[in-house]
């Protein structure tokens, strides 16, 4: 009894303390993260150290064999290279377009502003698979886009946008574009329009004032948009699997195949962890590069 009383007293003291109140507030989130992120992650790490097996998904043990297999394979190297290329392409296109879209939304007011922002939020209400799939009839060889281009006489014979690389990139840009716009818009919306007018008043043309004032102001948003777009696009699955051909296989699709078709858990786990590490390094690098220039003294 004495033991439990002192335990309650200790607990009471802890709850009263300011530091421990924060601990209690954060506890549900920490438990959730532990159960659904940390523990599965540790299971993944452990799985990657097992050996591949002929019969069954894996052979229990401690070996780096799966990692060696990933590094030795030309196929995986190609898949990873393609994943990064797709990531860079989708990121550059979506962030570039998002900067102008966010600026247009910032400048607009009334109904036009609402429409611009609403049409960005609207696709987020639909599931990823449905909206990616919706691009197929538009981009197919006998789809809407080809009909229009043929009808206008721009092209002589149909082009296969999808399945193919064009469809894959369009689909992936479409997926990440809203997040890129919102990241940039959230930063731009706090910008004082007077500063742009001041730049023009001091002799900066419209494009120059955009480069000198708007872009630097949007930089934190551009950094976030870049990291989100890149991390998501490197790990692309839905767009390449629905709008790509066999040549547009990303490492995420290969992992799915290793886990669910080839039943090679250790190799799938090893590939996952290696890509996770690679993306972490690249994302931190990008973030540092873009945010490092913020507040730094530029050439006067």
């Amino acid at each position: 009894m004495a033991g439990s009383e002192s335990m309650f007293a200790w607990l009471g003291e802890r709850i009263k303390g300011r530091d421990s109140r924060n601990v209690f507030l954060i506890a549900p989130l920490a438990a959730f993260e532990l159960a659904f992120f940390v523990i599965p992650f540790l299971i993944l790490v452990r799985m990657s150290l097992n050996a591949s097996a002929q019969a069954g998904p894996y052979q229990p043990g401690f070996t780096l064999g799966a990692y060696r297999a990933v590094f030795a394979s030309d196929l995986y190297r190609q898949l990873v290279a393609f994943s990064f290329e797709l990531g860079v392409a989708a990121t550059v296109i979506s962030v570039f377009l998002a900067l102008f879209y966010a600026y247009a939304a910032y400048r607009a007011d009334g109904l036009r502003k609402s429409l611009l922002l609403f049409s960005i939020i609207l696709p987020l209400l639909t599931t990823l698979v449905v909206k990616t799939y919706a691009w197929r009839p538009l981009l197919a060889p006998r789809g809407v886009l080809n009909d229009v281009l043929l009808g206008l006489g721009v092209i002589g014979s149909p082009i296969q946008f999808a399945p193919g690389i064009v469809g894959t990139v369009i689909g992936q840009v479409y997926i990440v574009f809203p997040y890129a716009v919102l990241s940039i818009y959230s930063v731009l919306s706090t910008m004082d329009w007077d500063t742009v007018e001041a730049a023009r008043d001091l002799g900066a043309s419209r494009p120059r004032s955009f480069l000198e004032v708007v872009v630097p102001e949007a930089l934190p948003g551009i950094a976030v948009a870049t990291v989100v777009s890149f991390a998501w696009s490197v790990g692309a699955y839905a767009a390449p699997s629905q709008l790509g051909s066999g040549a547009q296989t990303t490492f995420a699709m290969e992992i799915e195949s290793l886990m669910l078709t080839q039943f090679d858990y250790p190799t799938g786990a090893a590939l996952s962890l290696l890509m996770l590490a690679a993306m972490l390094v690249v994302s931190l690098g990008v973030l540092r590069l873009l945010t490092g220039s913020i507040g730094g003294v530029e050439g006067v």
Binding site: D192, D194, T195, E197, A198, A199, D201, L202, E212, V213, P216, E217, L219, I294, G295, E298
Partner: peptide
């Protein structure tokens, strides 16, 4: 050249 009510200094410079 205009001096603005909000001063409108460039915050990143």
């Amino acid at each position: 050249s205009m001096v603005f009510q909000s001063w409108a200094l460039f915050p990143r410079k």
